[in-house]
Design a protein around this nucleic acid. Structure first.
Lengths: 239, 239
DNA sequence: ACCTGAACACCGTTCAAGT
DNA sequence: ACCTGAACACCGTTCAAGT
């Protein structure tokens, strides 16, 4: 432990975060958790591990979070807000494209932390970043001409699809090691589907080539387009 | 180290099992895990907990499963196969209705084990029951007139939606206690959305009533119908 | 092959205490 | 209010050994 540089006396600002030994904050804790997640996988994101990374006793975290699930939920909310929201801002472009951009950006952001993808569906989407995402997506859908109630329902439909897709996709990668290229993951899946019995699962065997490509951008956007078609009818605004 | 003397009574008599001391099997282990899950939540589904419930040493399970994640994956596959598949069999009915039945049945089955819902998206859908489900869903979609490749893509789209929806829905219930009625869960959500600031989230605040109902059968089937519309055009095949 | 006892290297959380 | 040391009640997994 080094000596305290004693920052210029706050004197009047008690609303800041000047704890007696203000070395910690919710932000710092989430930062450390995320670093641990990326370097060593979700199991490393333990209270004790985070505390050790911060050079602090494990129970110090309980000043900022009531329990471990609260830490995890803060990590998830950070992940949701990390990208994605900016993609919706460019209001000059067609709404379909804005939703595509959002979806692709959010997927890329979540897949860059594959260890956390299963956490995203494990807690309600009620963090501040999740709310902000919903708000903006809702605005785009209303822009697109949907009635308010339908827009709200469509918003959830899209979120469920997007997060569900990413969770299932991320379940296939080892969060501990650098992500393999798409074609490698597809090849691994292909080998798996080629091994299923054509007798007991004839349709599955016949579609092995397509199923191997379930975890691709192609499948992701195909599904997204079918959903958008279902919401507004086949694409009449572009293409 | 002291331990709690638990009066757990291992009451089972599978005498017909092969093996020198055939008191155990993969099936029995999954059974015990599921009982523990329902009675005490996902955290109770530990190797040591399952072993104790079976009246066996913890490491005995490693004869049947290589590690804990393998046990969890077997539990998930059991859950997927537990219901759902029968619903697709009645080939006399319109395909839309058969898919509806499947979806509702699968959702009901998974929600009856809320503690496991987040596990379902956490591992690839490659168990035998998952394969069987995919095979039959694929058959229905081909029946519906979709071309083979589109049917395979649609199959995944539907699975992702269905599992994603259930996972997010189940994240809102405490797996330890009996599930509250739908209107109670909606009321709790309603209170949450009423608390969001109408200044910072105007659309969200305006749609609070709809968003409170995200976790209902109504929203689930609405989303399902929009997806089916996107796959085949608005319902013209209801015959 | 199947199962046990013992041990290793961890967990989350609580409590009392110090500042 | 913020943080620590120590402890409690757990974990998953491995190893050597017994049957």
């Amino acid at each position: 432990m080094r000596r305290n540089p004693s920052p210029a006396a706050p004197a009047q600002a008690p609303r800041n975060r000047p704890g007696p030994r203000g070395t910690l904050s919710r932000e710092l804790i989430v930062d450390a958790a995320l670093r641990l997640l990326d370097s060593s996988g979700p199991d490393a994101m333990s209270i004790r591990g985070i505390a050790a990374a911060l050079g602090v006793a494990p129970n110090a975290l309980y000043t900022y979070f009531p329990d471990k699930t609260a830490v995890l939920r803060a990590v998830v909310d950070r992940l949701i807000g990390e990208r994605a929201v900016a993609a919706l801002e460019d209001a000059g472009r067609p709404w379909r494209q804005r939703i595509h951009d959002l979806a692709l950006e959010l997927r890329a952001g979540l897949l860059s932390h594959p260890g956390a993808a299963s956490l995203v569906l494990g807690a309600p989407m009620d963090g501040p970043q999740a709310l902000a995402l919903g708000e903006r997506l809702l605005a785009v859908l209303i822009d697109a001409g949907l009635e308010r109630d339908d827009a709200a329902r469509a918003c959830y439909l899209l979120i469920v699809y997007l997060l569900g897709f990413v969770a299932l996709e991320a379940a296939e990668v080892d969060p501990t090691r650098p992500a393999p290229a798409e074609h490698e993951r597809v090849a691994a899946r292909r080998a798996g589907f080629d091994a299923v019995s054509a007798q007991t699962y004839p349709h599955t065997a016949a579609s092995a080539a397509v199923m191997a490509r379930y975890i691709t951008t192609e499948q992701f956007t195909w599904g997204l387009d079918r959903i958008l078609d279902g919401l507004t009818g086949p694409d009449r605004t572009a293409r």
